[in-house]
Nucleic acid binder design. Structure first.
Length: 94
DNA sequence: CGTATGACGTGCA
DNA sequence: GTGCACGCCATAC
């Protein structure tokens, strides 16, 4: 087992975000701020959107991440796509 | 290292 | 309820 680095985790904030978003159950939504909180930085909600947007990773239900306001926010694949997916899961969009 | 960017959140008019 | 400005943090260059 490789020794654990005593320094800060080499794992980028991105990885934590993905891990959390991946755990979002179908039909449920999670706010960016909430994800940041679970990631360990309740004030990094800004970075959350930044990371997801750049990653374009289809491995995570990033469409389930919305604003606390209940808005959609955005989607690098197209905001329309996000609305469609959420609506399909039974989530209403304002 | 400093600047710029971005799928946010909050406060106030 | 809506719109605007500011602040916040991580990442890219």
């Amino acid at each position: 087992m490789p020794k654990k680095s005593l320094k800060k985790p080499i794992i980028p904030f991105q990885k934590k975000v993905f891990d959390i978003v991946k755990k979002i159950p179908r039909g449920k939504t999670l706010a960016y701020k909430k994800v940041a909180e679970l990631a360990g930085s309740p004030n990094a909600y800004r970075a959350i959107g930044n990371i997801l947007n750049k990653n374009k990773n289809n491995k995570i239900p990033c469409h389930r991440v919305i604003m606390l306001n209940g808005r959609i926010g955005g989607y690098n694949k197209g905001i329309k796509r996000k609305i469609f997916l959420l609506k399909k899961e039974g989530i209403k969009i304002k």
